[in-house]
Nucleic acid binder design. Sequence first.
RNA 1: GCGGGCGUGGCGGAAUUGGCAGACGCGCCGGACUUAGGAUCCGGUGGUUAUACCGUGGGGGUUCAAGUCCCUUCGCCCGCACCA
Length: 823
Amino acid sequence: MRYNFEEIETKWQKKWSENGTFSIDESSEKPKYYALEMFPYPSGNLHMGHVRNYSIGDVVARYKKMQGYNVLHPMGWDSFGLPAENAAIQHGVKPSDWTWSNVDNMRRQLKRLGLSYDWDREVATAKPDYYKFTQWIFLQLYKHGLAYKKMSYVNWCPSCKTVLANEQVVGGHCDRCKSEVVKKELEQWFFKITDYAQRLLDDIDKLSGWPDKVKSMQSNWIGRSEGAEIQFKIDGSDESLTVYTTRPDTIFGVSYMVIAPEHPIVEKLIAGRPEEEKCRAFINKVQKLNEITRSATDTEKEGEFTGVYVINPLNGEKVPLYLANYVFLDYGTGVVMGVPAHDQRDYDFAKKYNLPIRIVIQPEGQNMKSEDMTAAFAAEGIMENSGQFDGLDNKEAIKKITDYVEEKGIGKRTVNFRLRDWLISRQRYWGAPIPIVYCDKCGVVPVPESDLPVMLPENVKFTGQGESPLKECKEFVNTTCPVCGGHATRDVDTMDTFVCSSWYYLRYCDPHNTELPFSKEKTDYWMNVDQYIGGVEHAILHLLYARFFTKALHDFGYVSCDEPFENLLTQGMVLKDGSKMSKSIGNVVSPEEIVGKYGADTARLFILFAAPPERDLDWNDSAVEGSYKFINRVWRAVEDLKDYMSDDKVDAASLNADEKKLRFAVHSSIKKVTEDFERFSFNTAISSIMEMVNALYLYKENTDKASYNKPLIGETVTSLIILLSPFVPHVASEMWERIGRTSDLTSEKWLAYDEQAIVVSEVEIVVQINGKIKDKIMIAADASAEELKTVALENEKIKKLTEGRQIVKVIPVPNKLINVVVK
RNA sequence: GCGGGCGUGGCGGAAUUGGCAGACGCGCCGGACUUAGGAUCCGGUGGUUAUACCGUGGGGGUUCAAGUCCCUUCGCCCGCACCA
């Protein structure tokens, strides 16, 4: 006998929707719980990664609801983005049509999984009622000086024909289309996330509910480094160059200086010198190098002498200034001191150009000679050749030399971050337009809030050629200046989609607000997100941007919280045959196929049972079958027993041995499942329910129908259905109905276990000699340590094995074991 | 190079606080039922030269006791990386 999943699942999905089972009542007295899964990009179809993500979230939301929380569990669409536009170019469909039909399809697929969303709160970032407020937030950032425009060398993807954020460049390639990224000088909008670098770093400590991995990735990305800026006078000039170094202790070992070829001062320095021509050739050569080669560790260090010398402020030495391909303009000051003895890069460079190598830090107790060196010595040691600082521990010297430099006014302590400002302009159509106009008279003018949204025009052409299609749309571009009423043009760029997704969790709190992105009252009630769930691929990008937005909005006074996500769960990937499901490998298992074959409950159960959520999960067809069989096994048991149930209280005192065993299994399982929910250990929760079902079958096997204990069966079956309900809500609801319950299972109270039911009178004790198991004995559960000892020493086996040996000590561990130590 | 993680049967995994390694499931083997079984129910299943011994990547240590703690080493995965 098998249950009809198709019929049952459709039936309950319809009921939940008609009854508004998952609609939220904000006036509820219950404590709130905000369960959130990362919203999907509407690419067309759900994949298994989505099923996993949303199954985990759904189980959490349903469990919390049954525990008595007022649960916010929303869903929406990260619906702006490049694929929509590519579809327009390739197939001539409008990006909006493509997007909304994908949304419709994926919404249907999500509903088919029976997820407990409040669909009345659905948001879509590409809808004017949403992007109106993305633009509003842009204006707030602009007002507070956190949005600014500047000319800069930016990452440009020639294939996507747009600039990319640093975070979207992976190994020198476009994160999306994998094309090689080139540098291009453009005027672009930036968000000043660097203003928040220190706070974003410090507050990582507050994120106790986040995985260490994500925290360390963010902290590496922010990349704080402490050091000093020190000025070196240019020989024969009043000007000086400022270097950034984390190793001021090596300053007496400086034998040359290097500067980034793009550095603005280079032009002036080399003008008119005999070296000018060679330098220009070198600059050209470096600029032609692509980003990957330029920044690869194994690229040979090359340079060109500028003809300029600088003076070491500590020892007055004159050292040559080189242009070099391994120095970057956008980190530190773009000028670096060359210390070949104590930095591997400088060592390689010095070897190539025959520059002196002077040791200034000696490994303790050694007398290393520079002629003998084969690599730089970068470790700690004792200072030498460093004038007044000789003999100091080099760590101490860092402090002393920096103090000295600060006293003399030739430098200062500084902190550098690897984090760059967030470039948000995209030369693309399908995004939120940047709410800025350029007036012939007034210059850069923000669009007044009352004029929002700046609507994305529909009548544009997609050729795939040239720049943004918005640029060609005259009705969009030409406008009037909100200040003087004169002619003005709109900014034709749109915002990075990560801007849209940086605040959607706030919108869910108040999704229908037409005046503001959200009211403070609503976010005060719902925020923070209690549990956020999504892929680890967002560990840096999305999660850092969202933290930044929350902090900025907090500072502007719009939200009270300054971190958005209390707890974070990063789920693993879904693999097939050891590799990520992908069309090119041909190992994709489609959710629709699985749901069609086994139903949504089986898909959910398998995906939660096969691996812990944070680990990668290898798809296994026969194990899916196994999950399906398990549901059927439960179904058959309930069908068999539903006429032998009673609601009467179990009379615990009069249970026979088999009944006690069953009741023990039921209550241990309630305990275990509840504990496992708290640590997201769904796989072990399910295995514990399986044990309970096995115990039920054993009871059936050993008991005549006529002797069934009806109250016990009643308790067992109702508990089983409740425990299973977060995982397999449809079939659980159906069974609930078939055992005659009329209440709504999804709001049934979660179970508490009976302490007495899991108390055992006798326990099995392991008896060890020197830690090796020799025997197992049954003993009263409340036996004292002394009793344990006595019983163990009187044990026949132990007596025999310890005969003629000296018993050194006996270690009793109540309820567990007893270890006899012999010599 | 820096940072994070992982390594347990044929496979997915369990062991939460140092206390019986391998729960639960897949697969496989056997039994029952059956015209039949790829259904269902029941049982078995780490290895071996098997009353015992060996087993959580390898080596060492701490401990009465180690998958778990410490040191060391190997392998794999992820993130960052000529960042001064």
